[in-house]
Design a protein around this nucleic acid. Structure first.
Lengths: 195, 195
DNA sequence: ACCCATATACTCGGCGCCGGATATACGGGA
DNA sequence: TCCCGTATATCCGGCGCCGAGTATATGGGT
């Protein structure tokens, strides 16, 4: 059966191995150092599962089980030509085709009418401050990265996330005021239902 | 062990059962009719798993296995008091606390430097038009729902999604022009590397 | 020389999710 | 009356993911 593009961790593995051969644990370390784990969920169990799957589909090869000092054996992997092709094609797909991802917040906010208006207002305001904190944290991080001389292309995904967070904050602010002032469409029925 | 708030489908089940008792298949039908499946991933296999789990944790009760005509047996479920409490608390959490969800696009765009600039530009422009189409489709849907006399609160999650899509489109447009004109930070190195 | 905290490197059992398979009933056309 | 497509309602085998567990090596403190 063909390789399935489910776990993005496999994408990270292909990308790392297209730099140089590595063993799984080293991949994890490198992902940590580069803050890649911010963007792609890393987890040891999944890492080894994913590497094995890539190996089975011949997108990577187990080059050698070496041992340094008396450390346990380490299997070092390298990417194949098919693997590189898969990496590029997967990447193109990820960027070009928007995928339905069912964000939790959409599920939550779609049922906000089940909460009494004051409660709803409170939790929306909580989220608003949380998003604000994430925004300032991101701004600090960007400052630091730019200060280290890293080009914008190296942290382009943070730039994107920042734009999204700003938009979310704006929407939350709007919804909070609309709830507070009772101007959101259907407020009367909502308020009446919780009395 | 305590109930785990993993699958949002369980949230939908609790919400539906807090209207009236239903059997699983009826829940699915209702979700379809109300376009809830746009916001919460529905899938029969998961539905029965989730219902069983809720039942095990006594958040819902199996009221009666009735049979209409000669149809196969149907187990009708109803929500318990603990279930209602869980619903409200989960809802509050979903709204108040932003969750890391690792969107696929972030993973993709973070590695856009691996593609040659012309390829990158092409796929970003593809996404841009795709997002545009989603936006117009959403606008049509909103028009229809408002025309049916539904209050804004009934489709508040679509309002949110619209705001997010607009922000994404704006960012994509910016990135596309910055790539086309070579003004994105680190372009020289990028262009040089793919020659 | 000894000890323990930390780093290194991987393993494994369990569980949730998926989607295709199953089985029966109903309704409309030939 | 027969047939078959669609609706009803659920089941289940398999697989990917998770995170806690395991085992050894290194290095710094006393």
């Amino acid at each position: 059966m063909a390789f399935k593009r489910t776990n993005p961790l496999a994408l990270a593995v292909l990308a790392l191995l297209s730099e140089r051969p590595m063993h799984p644990y080293e991949m994890a370390q490198t992902m940590r150092e580069r803050h890649q784990e911010e963007v792609i969920k890393l987890n040891y169990g999944s890492l080894y599962t994913v590497v094995e799957s890539l190996h089975k589909h011949e997108l990577i090869t187990a080059s050698a089980t070496q041992r340094a000092g008396n450390r346990p054996e380490r299997t070092v992997y390298a990417v194949t030509d098919t693997g590189t092709a898969e990496l590029h094609d997967w990447l193109r797909e990820l960027i070009a085709v928007p995928a339905r991802e069912y964000p939790r917040f959409e599920a939550g906010i779609s049922m906000v009418g089940l909460l009494p208006p004051p409660d709803a207002l409170a939790v929306v305001e909580q989220r608003c401050t949380a998003v604000d904190e994430q925004l300032t944290a991101l701004a600090v991080l960007l400052e630091r990265l730019a200060g280290m001389g890293l080009p914008q292309l190296a942290w382009i995904e943070l730039d994107y996330r920042m734009a999204m967070l700003r938009a979310e904050r704006a929407w939350l602010t709007w919804f909070a005021t609309a709830t507070r002032e009772g101007t959101v469409g259907g407020y009367d029925h909502w308020e009446e239902h919780h009395r």
